[in-house]
Design a protein around this nucleic acid. Structure first.
Lengths: 255, 255
DNA sequence: CGTCGTGTTGAGCCGTATCAAATTCCGTGG
DNA sequence: CCACGGAATTTGATACGGCTCAACACGACG
């Protein structure tokens, strides 16, 4: 776990934000856009492997991921690590610290990431003057809660191959929505830079068993994952066989 | 699972709300109080065992629990049920439906419950005119997210007795905070009306193994649970032995 | 060319699930 | 008040999924 070495980079205007043009995010109204320009205090770039937020820290900042991938995790007294979820571009990080004073989980960059930085001090400004933005914030929190509920159900009630399949489907569809895919003669591949250990930590399984279960799915021709790229030749069949409901394609607000 | 048979009861004024006097909840400002009076559309009483909200339903209402206990759960295609959390007085239910259109989990009354009913239509009213209330809403969502994260870590990374201990400690301290305890010659007892099956479904364990693990804790003199009441003779020791951090005592906003 | 991080594979064991049967609890009606 | 029936809890026996330990393969990098 490296120490963070944030590098302040040239701050792009929200109007020119690359995520705004992505169809899977809602558009800003003119008013919202104007507010976000003020709300945003800067932009940083963090190296792959660096811990952006450490558990227990009272971070003064909140972030929106502009590019790159990461993980949110929680450490236990016994040294184990639970990965709460994988973090994608457009995700908002740090609400808990803003609301409750301190962060109860860590956030780590898996690849190099570019982050949009917001000042926690302007949080009240947002609530007081920007009801639409406040709604987006609430939406994001509710969405996150909903996702963690699904994770809980998956980890609590499903067997190993279903867990893996569920996680792969989540990542695959999310990346596909974002348009982060590479089409080759052998189908659609999406970036998946995490390690098997991360997946294991996310699903409450041992590394070894995660590996063996992945191998089984691969042998069945249902999933291929190597060198940081993932392909699911037949997502529908995978979902059907494992009794998983494919994640819906709601456009999400940006913050 | 019974069908709901809500009974409209005489609606008490928010000023006289019994939860307001409970020290574990934040006080309303005069302004907030006035708003809540308008926001609240009624009060219902539901019987023990009834399903207040069913999964997938687009409920028009949101609720605050005035009294009684319940569970939030999620059903899987394979028929299993995951209990997301146990619901206590003061908890707010139905935000997800308000924000995302439909409810992704069910809510069931374990004992008889009295619920404060809010109209979803006034949600925007709240965001636009009541920043303090909006903050409370966000706080609640963030808190819930945080709790589910802890659940995930517990289920994903701990063994059977730690899981049970964690759940018992959560319930015990929460009830103690609420002041819902009965002191007898043999220590402090709090209400715990759920079934072993519910606890099992919350912790991702089988009923049988839950029972045997409970028996072990009982033999060790660490936990006693019978006839709907729970006692933990030495919470600190229980927490220490299982490497659990005791839940903090933050006062929470009411909605 | 050796080292280190990551992925892969096999063997054996332990924790937890499953199945089955008793027993206790509790509401209900006689 | 007691007898009854169904639900919840308790306990034992057995099976299996997933964990741990250990060794090896492979590529990146110095």
């Amino acid at each position: 776990m490296l120490q963070p070495s944030p590098r302040h980079v040239h701050s792009t205007s929200c109007a020119a934000c690359p995520l705004q043009n992505n169809p899977c995010f809602e558009d800003f109204s003119a008013r919202e856009l104007a507010f976000m320009e003020k709300f945003k205090t800067g932009e940083i770039s963090v190296a792959a492997g660096s811990a952006v937020i450490t558990e227990g820290a009272a971070s003064q900042h909140m972030y929106t991921v502009l590019s790159g991938l990461g993980i949110r995790y929680k450490s236990l007294p016994n040294g184990n690590r639970q990965v709460l979820n994988f973090v994608f571009p457009g995700d908002f990080i740090g609400l808990q610290a803003a609301v409750m004073g301190e962060m109860c989980h860590g956030f780590e960059a898996t690849t190099e990431m570019r982050l949009c930085v917001f000042d926690r001090a302007r949080y009240w400004d947002l609530l007081r003057n920007e009801p639409e933005r406040a709604h987006s914030l609430t939406w994001i929190a509710a969405r996150e809660e909903n996702f963690l509920g699904e994770s809980l159900a998956t980890i609590g009630q499903r067997g190993a191959s279903s867990r893996i399949a569920w996680a792969l489907l989540q990542i695959y569809t999310r990346q596909a929505e974002l348009g982060a895919s590479r089409s080759k003669h052998d189908g659609l591949w999406v970036p998946m830079p995490w390690k098997q250990q991360d997946l294991a930590n996310a699903l409450g399984m041992s590394l070894v068993h995660t590996n063996k279960t992945l191998a089984k799915l691969k042998r069945a021709g249902l999933a291929e994952w190597s060198r940081g790229w993932l392909a699911l030749p037949d997502p529908e069949r995978l979902a059907r066989e494992q009794e998983i409901v494919l994640p819906g394609q709601a456009t999400r607000p940006l913050l």
